[in-house]
């Protein structure tokens, strides 16, 4: 059920777009209003989420470290695994964001009665890391390649990305490797949640929905590029009209295009409210973005109440005469 429900949701989204465009002729709604609204929800939603996180105090340094902390000068410190300054944090974050360094340490716990004599063993498990990396990088490439529809003249890096992506020169129009890689990676990420009983048990509809949605987006895009074809010049004239806030609907564009646009709009609007917001959240992970400098620098808990203290020196000042009269020893005469 938790797999079927998100699958049905994505199918309904596709059908809504098809019915809206082919049946009700709501091209203006699906081509103009929904994309604008989705982008606004995305931008405002992400900003509010980030501000919400930033309002939560992080009273202690809680970086998860796996390297030598900075200490005595003759002990070599590992500034990437246990950063002690901002430079180390930036390096660590960059490795995390670009290469998923912490996921690289993913382990698999296995319990093999026959082989290990009832011992729990941990082994390397790089598949999730590899598929995650393939998926995210493909998505980034595909996203950046799409900027050819949103810039005129086209941004300088887009042709380079297309050349690299289509380097194998397979077919016409040229096959983009990322199109295949993203399909394979999403399929793996989906299969992983089904095949492994443990992962399946903890998977929720909110885990399957983005996978199905992204799969549907990729498939509709691939469908348009390689199979049904769209008049790409009209599409670009339309996207540029969206960018310049002077939207003009294209004529004679098939409904697959609107399905693609609607699914992408859904993804954008869904982004700030779902697990996908880890795009922004990774930068605000306290276990990653804090320097491990508790021993070098004092961090004061921001919600510490303002405690009225009465030190011994003040106590003695207050009761000096009485204490002296009683013959008690004083620190200061």
């Amino acid at each position: 059920m938790k797999i079927l429900f998100p699958l049905i949701a994505v199918i309904v989204l596709v059908l809504v777009a098809l019915a809206g465009v082919d049946g009700a002729h709501l091209q203006t709604l699906f081509g103009i209003y929904i994309p604008y609204a989705a982008l606004a929800v995305f931008l405002v939603g992400i900003v509010l989420r980030v501000i919400g996180w930033a309002r939560s105090p992080v009273p202690f340094r809680i970086p998860t470290t796996c390297g030598q902390q900075k200490t005595l000068p003759w002990i070599k410190a590992d500034n990437l695994e246990s950063p002690h300054n901002t430079l180390g944090v930036i390096g660590r974050m960059a490795l995390e964001v670009f290469f998923f360094r912490s996921l690289f340490r993913n382990l698999k716990a296995d319990y093999d009665e026959n082989r290990t004599g009832n011992e729990l063993t941990y082994g390397s498990a790089k598949w999730l890391w590899a598929a995650g990396l393939a998926f995210h990088w493909s998505f980034l490439f595909i996203f950046l390649r799409h900027l050819r529809f949103f810039s005129e003249p086209i941004f300088f890096f887009v042709p380079f990305l297309e050349t690299m992506d289509g380097l194998l020169q397979i077919g016409v129009p040229r096959l983009f490797m990322t199109d295949l890689v993203i399909l394979a990676a999403v399929t793996f990420l989906f299969a992983r949640r089904i095949v492994s009983p443990q992962v399946r048990y903890i998977s929720l509809p909110a885990d399957f929905f983005p996978l199905f949605l992204i799969l549907a987006i990729a498939l509709s895009g691939i469908f348009m590029r390689y199979i049904t074809k769209v008049d790409i010049v009209s599409v670009k004239a339309f996207t540029m009209s969206l960018v310049s806030f002077n939207p003009t609907l294209p004529k004679g564009i098939g409904s697959v295009f609107y399905v693609h646009i609607f699914l992408v709009s859904t993804l954008f609007a869904y982004f700030p409210f779902s697990k996908l917001v880890h795009m922004a959240g990774v930068f605000l992970s306290p276990t990653r973005n804090l320097a491990n400098n508790s021993r070098a620098k004092r961090h004061i808990n921001p919600w510490n109440p303002d405690v009225k203290v009465h030190t011994y020196a003040e106590y003695e000042d207050e009761f000096r005469d009485v204490m002296k009269a009683a013959g008690l020893p004083l620190e200061k005469e």
Binding site: V47, P57, V58, S151, E152, V243, S244, F245
Partner: peptide, 29 residues
């Protein structure tokens, strides 16, 4: 907290996310 860093980060994000609009905003193509 860390308002300086957060605001810089958000400005960079919004700048990138809306870059096509700054780049091609008023142009009729």
């Amino acid at each position: 907290y860390d308002a300086g860093k957060i605001i810089i980060g958000l400005i960079v994000f919004l700048g990138f996310a809306t870059f096509p609009i700054w780049h091609d905003g008023g142009k009729a193509v």
